[in-house]
Simulated assay, not measured.
Amino acid sequence: METGYRGCLLIIDQRALDRECLARGLIGRGLKMDVCAVGSVEEWRREQDIHPPLEAILFNIGSRRADDATLASDFSRFAAEFKSIPIIVLSDADDLTQVVKMLEYGARGFIPSSVGIAVCVEAIGLAVAGGIFVPASSVLSVRHLVNEAPGGAPRALSGMFTLRQEEVVEALRKGKANKIIAYELNLRESTVKVHIRNIMKKLKATNRTEVAYKLNNLFASGMTN
């Protein structure tokens, strides 16, 4: 998309509009690289001759989970083909399990879609410099689990949900709509939906009403312990 830079950032995202908007956003916020946004590695191979050598890869996994066998296979293939190129993962989730799993696969950074373009630029620069970026929300969730006092409703949640999911849980208990939750937590509505699906899965609930019922029971049991 831009020429004259020494290296190239490869964005791999199957959604054309998302990848093109992200590419333009990164360039607009000062990313000092050429950017090639494609839907697959095969598409990159057809275009690589018109771009500078790769410096980094931004791989958008969307709402896919790190324990998904297909994702693990795709990432292993990328890592094998681009051995010396840092791969940064962009994900709709930010829970610690997801972050750790992708780092174990060989990712040099993990960017949740809840952050802004400026953070993406810094994370990419850090990976190119040899560092590893992880979201602060995931780190804080570990502190939360360690520091939470025993007993009470928050303790009942700490072993089940990430810190971000707990914030969504609080909003669900208050009956807030997805748009309101997204606004108050500075998230995209699609990200809120991902969190809610994960909360439902953990609670084995089939709808929001059942989620609220089970959460209220969980809080009630936590307060009586």
Rank of each mutant, 00 (worst) to 15 (best):
I124V: 14
P135I: 07
E2Q: 09
A129L: 08
I11E: 00
L26R: 03
A149K: 11
E184P: 02
R15Y: 13
V119R: 12
R46D: 12
N216M: 12
L58M: 04
E210P: 12
R77F: 13
D13V: 00
P154H: 13
A171N: 11
I124C: 08
A37I: 04
N198S: 13
N225W: 09
P52A: 14
A118L: 05
Y5H: 14
K202A: 15
S138Y: 08
G125P: 00
I88T: 13
R45F: 07
K32R: 13
P53T: 03
P112A: 09
F82C: 11
E166V: 14
E166D: 11
I50E: 15
K214T: 08
K83E: 14
R46Y: 10
I57D: 11
E47V: 00
G109W: 09
M200C: 05
C36N: 05
I117H: 12
I88E: 07
A156N: 11
K32S: 10
V211T: 10
S113Q: 10
R6S: 11
A72M: 10
F133P: 02
V121W: 06
A16W: 06
E170A: 13
E167W: 11
F110D: 09
I132L: 04
H51E: 01
G30W: 00
N178H: 13
S63M: 06
R77S: 15
R29N: 12
S138M: 05
N178Q: 14
L163K: 06
A123N: 00
G116L: 02
K174T: 05
V134Q: 01
N186W: 06
G39H: 06
G109Y: 07
G116Q: 02
I124E: 07
S73D: 04
E81M: 15
I181V: 10
T224S: 08
L96N: 08
G106C: 03
V89M: 10
S73N: 05
S158K: 09
N217Q: 14
Q98G: 12
H144G: 14
L31K: 05
A123E: 01
I196G: 05
L163W: 02
L215D: 07
A156T: 13
T209M: 10
G4H: 00
D49P: 05
F133V: 03
S40G: 04
H144S: 13
I124W: 06
A80Y: 02
L9F: 07
A212T: 12
A80E: 04
A23R: 00
E167A: 15
E55I: 04
F82L: 11
L26Y: 03
D13L: 01
R188Y: 13
G28M: 09
N216P: 06
G7V: 06
V169S: 07
H51M: 07
S221A: 15
H195T: 06
F219T: 11
I132E: 02
D13A: 03
